[in-house]
Simulated scan of single mutants.
Amino acid sequence: MIHIVPKPTDTPDDNSTGAVMRELERADARYGVLDLGAVNSLDSGLENELIWVCGIRQDGHQFETLNVLSLNNRVINTPESIVACASKVMTTALLLANNVRTPETVYTQSEGQARQFLQRHGKIVYKPLYGYDGNGIRLVTGPGELGPGPWYLQEYVKNDRDFRVFVLGGEAVGAIARVSDTLMHNIHQGGIGMPVAIDEEMRATAEAAAAAIGIDYCGVDLLLDREGYTVLEVNGTPNWHCMAAPIPKLLARYLIEREREMRA
């Protein structure tokens, strides 16, 4: 049986969890909904089960509950990989450690270092460490715009679009371009998504990013600069808006296969 933790941001018009549930039903796969708020993780009764985390709230209780459940169960995505993706600085550190291209970045409490980084690049991007859906991202062009630290800052890469690549089981299976006339191309910030073909460099970069995080599936956000694709971030509970690829069906099949492997 597949135990499902629904995405808390699902709505009737945008229901990622429900889309995968429908595909599981078509495949006659058994599943149930797991309410992390109603689980005593130290005595859950769950052992050697597959738990799919479509999404969680960014709070300590849900992270800790999943961590404990992962001791005796197969959790997709793992708590460690979700936490790594939730933290932009940890994502960047893992990308750098695995030689995956990402914009030059600094994470510092030192205002002097932040100012030096700004002076070197002239124009930089401030991002909240635990932000989502493009919230709080802003362009910084002068020291007075830095705001309070600590600062997670990236060099500004001039662009009019970014790319979201969906990687499942180590393989890039779908991609979109997100276009806007603002700094953020995220669809929740007004970007327009359209399916695109996955070229070989895009595939290699996205798959390398997923491998660096050590994650079952993810959305890898890329920019195209003069040297090729560079990784902005990796999303551990991704949406798949506008993708032509049948992501819910592919994801349901992946969950079914992993659950069968556990029973073999």
Rank of each mutant, 00 (worst) to 15 (best):
W151I: 06
P150R: 03
L168F: 11
R161D: 07
G170H: 05
W151Y: 13
D160N: 14
R164G: 08
R164W: 03
Y156W: 12
I176M: 01
N159Y: 05
P148M: 06
V165P: 13
G170Q: 06
A177G: 06
E155C: 05
L168E: 04
V165I: 13
D162W: 11
V165D: 09
Y152T: 00
R178H: 04
L153C: 01
E155T: 10
I176S: 03
G174A: 13
A177C: 12
K158Q: 15
L168G: 00
A175C: 13
K158P: 15
W151Q: 11
Y156M: 11
W151H: 03
I176W: 03
N159P: 08
K158I: 09
D162V: 02
W151V: 09
I176D: 08
V173C: 12
V173S: 02
V167H: 06
V167K: 02
P150L: 00
E155M: 11
V173H: 01
F166A: 11
A175R: 01
R164Y: 06
K158R: 14
A172P: 03
G149Q: 04
V165M: 02
E155K: 15
K158A: 15
G174C: 10
A177N: 01
V157A: 10
N159L: 07
F166E: 10
G149L: 10
L168T: 04
D162N: 01
N159E: 04
V179F: 00
V173L: 04
V167Y: 02
G169T: 12
V179K: 14
F163Q: 01
Y156L: 05
Y152H: 07
R161L: 13
N159Q: 14
R161Y: 12
I176V: 15
N159W: 01
W151R: 00
A177I: 11
Q154P: 02
A175E: 10
W151A: 00
Y156N: 05
Y156P: 10
G169N: 12
G174S: 02
R161H: 15
L168C: 09
V157E: 09
G174D: 06
D162K: 12
Q154V: 03
E171G: 03
E171W: 07
E155L: 03
P148R: 15
P148T: 13
K158N: 15
G174L: 08
V173A: 02
L153E: 09
E155Q: 14
L168H: 04
Q154C: 02
A172T: 06
V167S: 07
F163H: 14
